[in-house]
Amino acid sequence: MTRSSLMTDLMAVIQDRKTRTETEKSYVAGLLRGGVPKIGAKITEEAAEVVEAGDEPGEEGRVHLVKEVADLVFHSLVMLAHRDLGWDDVEDELARRFGISGIDEKAARNKPAQ
């Protein structure tokens, strides 16, 4: 399985759980039933854990960081599904930004409308 197809497959599972949130006894279905407050709380929790793991030394810290980033990405995917978005939308945005200086890209977002 390629990495891109892994993300697509994972989004498909999350979308499947979304269609069955009322009957599904799953972690994802529970998050989706809780909406932005519940999903957002998990994203906030996981983001804090990423930062903490980023400061842990050695191989154990590296392994922990990867696991926490995976949790953060997963919960972000659930939020995307909640808003009827998919991984392709994220890839499209990253592709749009590719090759553009981060400073220039951020400045373009902050320009007032004319």
Rank of each mutant, 00 (worst) to 15 (best):
E91K: 09
R33Y: 14
V36R: 11
M7A: 07
S76W: 03
T8Y: 09
M7C: 00
E91C: 06
A29W: 08
V73H: 07
I103S: 05
G99I: 02
V63T: 09
E59R: 06
R96D: 08
K25R: 10
R62D: 04
M79C: 05
D71V: 08
V50L: 06
Q15S: 02
G30W: 10
G99T: 00
G99K: 02
V51E: 13
V66E: 09
D92A: 15
V78H: 15
I103E: 09
E59C: 08
L72F: 12
A53Q: 06
T21C: 02
K38M: 11
G102S: 13
L10H: 04
A81G: 14
G54W: 12
R20V: 06
T8C: 00
P37F: 06
E56M: 13
D84M: 08
G34M: 02
L65M: 10
V50S: 08
I39V: 11
M11C: 03
R17T: 00
G61Y: 14
D16S: 14
E91V: 08
K25D: 11
G30M: 05
D71I: 10
D9N: 11
V28Q: 12
E60A: 14
G30L: 02
K38H: 07
G99A: 01
H82C: 13
T23R: 15
V63M: 07
G35A: 01
V66F: 12
E52N: 12
M79H: 11
R62N: 03
L77S: 14
A53Y: 04
K25N: 05
E22M: 09
R97I: 07
V63A: 14
V90L: 10
A53M: 14
G58M: 06
V78N: 11
L85S: 03
L80H: 03
I100H: 15
E24D: 15
L10V: 05
M7Q: 03
L10F: 01
Q15H: 04
K38D: 01
K25P: 01
F74K: 04
L65Q: 09
F74D: 02
R33F: 12
E93N: 08
R97S: 07
K25M: 02
V13R: 15
A53N: 10
